[in-house]
């Protein structure tokens, strides 16, 4: 099977910042991504869990975006503006995709 190299960016960020992050990504021309709720975790800011939360304040989300490597800097610059002040993690990994023209 023919595969093509791509970059997989995962941004885990506080749920209240979701709208800002998505807006910044859209402004940078990134309009293909997946948002997932995150069940819970632990980090520098302590433990947290989605269970029982009424407010979005304690929730985290995961935004995953797969794109060509030449578009990576645009996404990271846009994301950093939002992520910098918030609790969260940004990671970039190499991956392979099947249909290169979609990225």
């Amino acid at each position: 099977m023919q595969t093509h190299p791509a970059k997989r960016v995962e941004i885990i960020i506080e749920a209240p910042a979701q709208r800002r992050l998505v807006r910044a990504m859209n402004d940078a021309g990134i309009d293909a991504y997946t948002i997932l709720p995150v069940l819970g975790g632990s980090g520098r800011s302590g433990r947290w869990s989605r269970d029982g939360q009424v407010s979005t304040a304690s929730g985290m989300i995961s935004v995953t975006c797969i794109l060509r490597s030449d578009r990576l800097d645009g996404l990271l610059n846009a994301a950093l503006e939002v992520v910098e002040r918030h609790i969260g993690v940004v990671s970039v990994t190499d991956c392979e995709v099947l249909r290169a023209e979609r990225f």
Partner: peptide
């Protein structure tokens, strides 16, 4: 408050420690 304000604080004052105010 523990519903409206915590969410607003995460947006407006993300540097504040949520563990303290919650």
């Amino acid at each position: 408050s523990y519903i409206a304000v915590p969410a607003a604080m995460r947006v407006a004052l993300p540097e504040a420690n949520p563990s303290i105010y919650l």
